[in-house]
Design a protein around this nucleic acid. Sequence first.
DNA 1: CTGTTGCCATAACACTGTTATGGTACATGA
DNA 2: TCATGTACCATAACAGTGTTATGGCAACAG
Lengths: 221, 221
Amino acid sequence: MTTPGDDDTRRAILDAALNLLTEQGHHALTVRRVAAAAGCSTIGVYTWFGGKDGLVDALWVEGFGSFGAALKRARSASGPLGRLVGQARAYRRWALSHPSHYQLMFFNVIPDHRPGPDAADAAAGAYASLLAAIEGARGRGELRHDDTGTVAHICWAMVHGLVTLQLTNSGPEGVTDSDAANGRAFDAALEALVCGLAHPRANPPADGDRPITRATRSKSV
Amino acid sequence: MTTPGDDDTRRAILDAALNLLTEQGHHALTVRRVAAAAGCSTIGVYTWFGGKDGLVDALWVEGFGSFGAALKRARSASGPLGRLVGQARAYRRWALSHPSHYQLMFFNVIPDHRPGPDAADAAAGAYASLLAAIEGARGRGELRHDDTGTVAHICWAMVHGLVTLQLTNSGPEGVTDSDAANGRAFDAALEALVCGLAHPRANPPADGDRPITRATRSKSV
DNA sequence: CTGTTGCCATAACACTGTTATGGTACATGA
DNA sequence: TCATGTACCATAACAGTGTTATGGCAACAG
């Protein structure tokens, strides 16, 4: 299309958009502001990205690249489904340290934006880590359930729901007040879900009637 | 403020907004279109609701009223934490039958909308049902965990996450393809979560190693 | 009758994403 | 060297958005 090297404007626009998103949030992502920050006119966004939707798609690709890499780098936790738990914590850590990007990717904050093929591919790449972790656990007989897709769906819904409640400050009072309380609730949720998903054989020797109380504060995330 | 009965315009605007939201989705919720459908000028929205945010707040109140009533009406399912499972299914049923309203209330689709006190009260009223169900289960010793707030947080996150994935057609391929597949995944998630949250004493006699396979299709929702 | 208050329409403002018009710089071919 | 065409981009405009300044009209209070 163009000779490599002459797309400085494209890079400037993308960097400006990333910076605006990180520094000021998605509401600052207007074509005019991005163009001004990149030092060009609004036309640049249309020349290089086809419009705002294309620019948001490019931000998706960047975001899912970073997100997927974080999931791949995740260290396994101890216990059954340890890799899954490690990825869940990495998921949460990435979301909380990139809140604006997470909202852009998952909260529908750009009205009526539908991701294009590139963005969808980037997203699929990130989810591949999750699926691989579950497939591995299934292969080792750690799962009570044999449908990888369903287990992935459940895990993703749980983690996404927990992160969403924290990012929107929703949820019953008390839990959403502090990041530490959220972290404890997050770990409690993982603990319960693992208990329900893991094969009984893989569970640690059940401690009978020992209740899990609020005093159980694992050092999370 | 005004004598009762002379707020026909207010009711007309609210009805027009509800209708536009239900029939055409949140993107049709513009001040001009609502006013035109209500048969007045845009000023009416400002006179009676203070602006678009106030109108959206009123839609929140209506939405959480209906939503909360649906939760209150929920029939308990059988098994441990049956009332909680019944509410979860009622939650999903309401969300799927009021998708535009659910998106309005939970998806941040009105840019930068922050709910006012009335809307927050309406939301709190709806959540009260959930908290009551959990408090009841805790009182009957059905819970492994003794922190009602944390359990409510976990349950809400799970259900919200599951509903969100279906409404956005996200999630690993295969599960989100049909409503029936979603329903099965939903029930599988509830089953796993209940297994992790319920006190072992409250669990039905464990069937040992019987795996829960995809053939386990409970008639859900 | 006068003044006040509540309700509302017209028209405008500032902002959004988008695009029609035209200009400039550069490569290509004769 | 000159003509042609292509790639990039700035200006200015268009239609849409939420919001508001201005002013008019009707009903009620003194």
